[in-house]
Amino acid sequence: MNDDRNQKTAVVTGASSGIGAATARRLADDGYRVILAARRTDRIEALAAEIGGISITTDVTDAASVAALAEAVGPHLDVLVNNAGGAYGLSPVAAADTDEWRRMYDVNVLGVMQVTRAVLPALIASGAGAIVTVGSTAGLVAYEGGAGYNAAKFGVRAVMEALRLEVFDQPVRVMEIDPGMVHTEEFSLTRFGGDQARADAAYAGVAEPLVAEDIADAISWMVTRPAHVNIDRLVIKPRAQAAAHKVDRRS
């Protein structure tokens, strides 16, 4: 890949839809050359063509795939947005599906670790690297039926906190953004196995949940702060959501 140091480069994982796609568009608008990494080749190719970016088919749970992404990135990288993740199911612990839990851990925790590990040298080499990992308010407060996803997102938080301590003397910022209710086209649909009615019910009556562009805007702000400013954790929720269990659904 052409390494033109006059233009900063950002990698966005999970860039095929939702927050990832919105973030890729926003960073391109900010002047970054954006590398879109996701499994769905057709989607990231179309988005790359739209924003003048680069698409690299990537499965963050596969070590060889992540290694290929790092090789394509090259020796310098300015921004990594760890967005690939997901929630599967809403079962209580007593009825937990082991495969769902393993899948959530693989993509949310091991995926973040593998991508970060692979490109960390390039981020440090840039002299002012920035990592933003998309967590969730589910990683701050547990709730009934969410234990598997809670555990995965609490894990993401632990990884970022430890990494920040480990690279405290290196020129790289380690940041985390934890969104609350974000109405995207796929998150809840994926969680409920394609059940559109259940997915729609998650946002029923909420006048203004967050949208992907709100999170992209916040990520843009985080990475464009001066290099000495580290936004350790940004919690962002719609006004209607006071807490995971307290949401204004009157509309």
Rank of each mutant, 00 (worst) to 15 (best):
L140P: 00
T190Q: 14
P171G: 12
F187M: 10
E100L: 10
L165S: 07
V141H: 12
N108L: 06
Q196A: 15
D178M: 07
A64S: 05
A128T: 04
V81Y: 13
P171E: 10
A152C: 09
P92G: 13
R103F: 15
Q196V: 15
A72N: 07
N150H: 11
L69A: 08
V182F: 05
A122K: 12
A72R: 12
R117A: 11
R164H: 11
V79Q: 04
D106M: 07
T184A: 03
E144R: 08
M160P: 00
G89A: 02
V115K: 09
W101N: 08
H76W: 10
A96S: 13
G89T: 03
P121C: 06
T116R: 06
V93A: 14
T137R: 01
G85F: 12
G129P: 02
G145F: 02
A122W: 11
P121H: 05
I124W: 01
L120G: 08
L110C: 04
M113L: 11
R173I: 05
T133P: 01
R173Q: 02
L165Y: 03
F187D: 04
V134T: 03
W101F: 15
R191E: 11
I177P: 07
V172I: 14
E161I: 01
L80P: 00
E100V: 02
A68M: 15
H183T: 02
I131H: 12
R198D: 02
G129C: 06
T137M: 13
L163H: 05
V141M: 03
A94H: 11
V79T: 05
V132L: 12
I131W: 13
Y88D: 06
D78M: 06
